[in-house]
Amino acid sequence: MIIQRISRFISNFENLMPIFAAACAVLAGIAILSLPFVYTEDQLYPKNIDRESPLDPYDRGGPPFTQADIVLQYPENSPTAGFVTAYLTPFSWALANTTLHTGTTIVGHPGGILDEILYNTRGLDTVVETTILFIAFAIASYIFRKGSP
């Protein structure tokens, strides 16, 4: 009897979201109760902040075209890891020599620690993620076009 009622409740797809949200809320509540979690201090890709550097929040060391030291999971799989981090385009090199306040802009250029992670050592993540973007836009534009023939 009760199973029948439950299954009837579940089979209405309007009730799907409430069930899932309630499950998430309960689990997050349990997570709060089981705090504190340990935080392992030796993380991959750690940060070191040098406020005096022109690359301020992203100075990960090394003159251009030498290999910088970064902590990754499998160094033997990415032999060129560290070159990208240390590379500066001529434009960003000029910026770095003029002012102390464009660190983020400089690291936004090709080169820098994030490009190292996103393109080089963890490149597969970015491939999958751009694919998600692609699929979602394909769905949206297909539906959009179907609406206006």
Binding site: L124, D125, V128, T131, I132, I135, A136, A138
Partner: peptide, 16 residues
């Protein structure tokens, strides 16, 4: 993390 990304890709494809 890669597993999570692939899983959400499966999810969005199913919606599509």
């Amino acid at each position: 993390f890669d597993f999570c990304l692939f899983t959400s890709l499966v999810g969005i494809c199913n919606v599509g």
